[in-house]
């Protein structure tokens, strides 16, 4: 019987601790069976159910880009039962994934136009996937702007890559932290305020926002104020999930299920749903 609830077997290839408090770890996984790898085709913005037998499953956005063939990346914040168990994983351990699940950022629509990526904290995972994808297809897109905020400098993820991105001249990268910290010489301020200050131009531009719910809530109106049309503002939402395939019933926002109708929604769509904000 073809059982969609059975996870695909993966091996932990690499683990990176992202912050000094060790609450954020990045896991690079590889497929144990080559046919599973063949079958697994994904796009930036999609997610997987990460499975630890005996403990359970949790959904995480895929942080690697489909252009990165060798590994599948997830960055996990240690918060609950499953994420705690994931943090105990060692290199070489076997885990499971179900996916790819959900829809993705509409990169085809972005072609030939500018893209503004607005991210907050450890929600930068699928935004990394998107950014790597765009940079890999650099000539297909116009200006790329990234506005990335974290509570403090420690809480940015992918710090080595950020350092690389900062050197590029085909990418406008703006980093901001919530409160002033010694030694920080970049922007200070909450993401919505910083977006307002930087005021990226809306003309021929698409915007993708992902972060904590409060950040999303206050950033979207700023973008509207900056004259971004509602159908050009995209965000990725999170809800508690179990099945990931539109059956278990808990991740709905109004009549939409985040797992199958999302996680990526345009502001135009969200404005029609009473429960969205």
């Amino acid at each position: 019987m073809d059982n969609t609830y059975i996870p695909v077997q993966m091996k932990v290839e690499n683990i990176l601790i992202e912050d000094p408090a060790k609450t954020l770890r990045t896991f690079d996984l590889s497929f144990i069976n080559s046919e599973d790898k063949e079958r697994f085709k994904y796009m930036p913005g999609q997610f997987c159910e990460f499975s630890i037998l005996g403990r359970g499953e949790s959904p995480f956005g895929i942080a690697s880009s489909p252009t990165e063939q060798d590994f599948l990346r997830f960055t996990v914040n240690r918060t609950g039962l499953v994420t705690n168990e994931i943090h105990y994983l060692q290199k070489g351990d076997e885990v499971g994934i179900r996916g790819p699940l959900g829809n993705w950022y509409p990169v085809e629509k972005f072609k030939g136009e500018n893209v503004v990526i607005v991210g907050g904290g450890f929600a930068f995972t699928t935004l990394r996937s998107l950014l790597i994808y765009l940079l890999e297809h650099r000539k297909d897109y116009g200006e790329i702007t990234v506005i990335y905020g974290a509570r403090n400098p420690d809480l940015f993820i992918y710090k080595d890559e950020i350092a690389e991105w900062e050197k590029r001249d085909d990418l406008n990268l703006h980093l901001t932290i919530d409160k002033e910290v010694d030694g920080w010489n970049k922007m200070v301020g909450f993401v919505p305020t910083v977006v307002k200050e930087l005021a990226p131009k809306a003309e021929k531009t698409w915007c993708v926002v992902c972060g904590p719910p409060i950040m999303i809530k206050y950033t979207l109106p700023v973008l509207v104020e900056l004259k971004f049309p509602n159908d050009r503002i995209y965000t990725s939402l999170e809800r508690k999930m179990k099945c990931g395939i539109g059956k278990c019933g808990r991740c709905n926002i109004g009549s939409k299920y985040v797992c199958i109708d999302g996680p990526v929604f345009s502001l135009e769509q969200l404005n029609t749903i009473s429960e969205a904000f």
Partner: peptide, 10 residues
């Protein structure tokens, strides 16, 4: 609507 849980050990 349903929940998914693991029963047993690793």
């Amino acid at each position: 609507c349903f929940d998914i849980q693991d029963e047993g050990k690793s």
